[in-house]
C-alpha cells in the first residue's frame, strides 16, 4: 500500500504506513531534510510545511491524511530565485543556528498570504508557535515587515 503525494510540484509515492507523520516521510523516505524535527508534538514549529498554502505542523500530520499539495522549504523559492520572505531573511541576516528558520519562514509566508500588511500584534499571534532558542525574534519581526512591503509593491 502506498500513499500518493505532491511535494513541491513533484508526484511522489510513500511506502510508509499511513499513520507515519508527514515529517518523517519527507525526511527519512524522500530525503527532503530542510524540514526539521524539533519536538514531535507540534509545540515548536520547526517542522512547519504548507498544505495547499496553509501552514501545518508536519510532525503531527499523518501522511495518509494529507489532502493537498505539500510545499516544503525546498519549494519555497522559485528555482534559484528566492521568495520575498527568504530575500527579507537574507537582508536582515536573520538566521543564527538556523535550525528553526525553515519553519519560521513557512509560517511567515502563510501569514503574509492571509494578511498582506500584518501589525506587530498580528505577527506575534501568528509566530508564537515557532520557537527560536537563539533569540532571532527581533530580526524575524523586521524581516516579515520587509517581506510584506516587498509583496505589496509587487
Amino acid at each position: 500500500m502506498t500513499v500518493k503525494l505532491v511535494v513541491n510540484g513533484d508526484a511522489l509515492e510513500s511506502a510508509s504506513a499511513p499513520d507515519t507523520p508527514l515529517l518523517w516521510v519527507l525526511r527519512d523516505e524522500f530525503g527532503l531534510t530542510g524540514t526539521k524535527f524539533g519536538c514531535g508534538v507540534a509545540v515548536c514549529g520547526a517542522c512547519t510545511v504548507h498544505v495547499d498554502g496553509e501552514a501545518m505542523r508536519s510532525c503531527q500530520l499523518p501522511v495518509g491524511d494529507v489532502d493537498g499539495a505539500v510545499t516544503t522549504i525546498e519549494g519555497l523559492s522559485d528555482g534559484e530565485t528566492l521568495s520575498a520572505v527568504q530575500t527579507a531573511w537574507v537582508a536582515h541576516q536573520v538566521a543564527q543556528c538556523g535550525y528553526c528558520q525553515a519553519g519560521q519562514q513557512m509560517q511567515a509566508a502563510s501569514l503574509l498570504s492571509d494578511n498582506p500588511q500584518p501589525t506587530d500584534a498580528d505577527i506575534s499571534a501568528a509566530m508564537n508557535g515557532n520557537l527560536c532558542r537563539c533569540g532571532t525574534y527581533p530580526r524575524i519581526r523586521a524581516a516579515i515587515h520587509t517581506a510584506a512591503a516587498a509583496l505589496r509593491e509587487g
Binding site: 527532503l32 530542510g34 519555497l76 531573511w89 537574507v90 541576516q93 538566521a95 538556523g98 528558520q101 519562514q105
Partner: peptide, 12 residues
C-alpha cells in the same frame, strides 16, 4: 553577510 545564511534559509 554570513557565509552560512543562504544555505540556512533555503533548507540546504
Amino acid at each position: 553577510p554570513r557565509v552560512d545564511m543562504e544555505d540556512k534559509i533555503t533548507g540546504k
